[in-house]
Amino acid sequence: MKELLAFLPITIAYLAFRSTVSANVPAPDVVLLIVFFMAVRGASLEGLLAAFVLGYIEDAFTGGVLGSSSFALIIVHITVHLASKKAHFSTPGIRAGGALFFSLLKSLLIFAAIRSSGVRAELFWGIAATAITTGVFAPAAMNLLARLSFFLNPHGFKNETQ
C-alpha cells in the first residue's frame, strides 16, 4: 500500500503538469505507466486498487466521464498480467512496445466506455501520438518507478522489477 500512497502525489503532480505546461503537446501517459509497471511485476490487489483509484482521479481531474479511465486501467492491469506470463517485459524495447500497445488499448477502452454511455465520441490521431510518446518514455519512466519502489521497499527481493 506504500507504493499506491507514493504514486498518488505523482499522479496529481503529473495531471497538474499536463494541464498547464504541456496542455497542447502530446505527453506520456504517466498514469498508464504506473499501472503497467505494477502489473508487469505480477497482478496484485494493490495494483488493481491503484488502477481503479488513479483512473478515478484522472477522470475527476480532467472532467472526463467518471469510471471510464478506471475501467480501462483495470482491464489493462489484468491484460498486462496475463501477457507477462507469455512475454517478459524486461528489455527497454519490449517495455516501450508494450507501453505503446497498452496506451492504445487504454484509449480504445475509454472510447468504448464513453460511446456506450451515450456520448458521441470519434476516434482521432491524438491517441496514437500519446501512445508513441508513452512508448518512448516507458523504459526511463519504469526505471525511475523501480528505483522509487526499491526505495520504499528496500528489504524485499519480491518487489524488485524483472
Partner: peptide, 22 residues
C-alpha cells in the same frame, strides 16, 4: 482467482459509473 474476481468486480463497477454518467 481473487485477482480475476476483484478485477471483474472493479471493472463492472467502473463501467456502471461510466454508463450511468448521463
Amino acid at each position: 482467482h481473487q485477482i480475476v474476481i476483484a478485477s471483474i468486480f472493479l471493472a463492472l463497477y467502473s463501467l456502471h459509473l461510466a454508463l450511468t454518467y448521463k
